[in-house]
């Protein structure tokens, strides 16, 4: 699997601060990036599960 095609999922447990945004921007560069916000009302866990399963790597931020 080439690095460029890595599917990376960014999950946020709270609203990301500027540090997290900077790190995510670097991590997502040249990758197939997706995200999921857990801090919204009633997150859809089936959708989260599907995204995790589709991703090569998941990062779940604070």
């Amino acid at each position: 699997m080439s690095d460029e095609k890595m599917k990376i999922l960014q999950v946020y447990r709270s609203e990301p601060n500027s540090d997290v945004q900077t790190l995510v921007e670097i991590l997502n560069r040249d990758r197939d990036a997706d995200e999921f916000k857990l801090y919204v009302n009633n997150p859809n866990y089936d959708t989260l599960f599907q995204k995790i399963w589709a991703a090569d790597k998941t990062v779940c931020w604070w």
Binding site: R13, L38, P43, Y45, D46, L48, F49, Q50, I52, W53, W62
Partner: peptide
């Protein structure tokens, strides 16, 4: 198999919600 590493003490609803979704799948 899905692995969940729990380091915080305030995400039980997310852990349960995701586990239920995984079991449904």
């Amino acid at each position: 198999k899905l692995g969940i590493f729990v380091t915080s003490n305030q995400n039980m609803r997310h852990i349960l919600g995701l586990t239920r979704a995984a079991k449904r799948a």
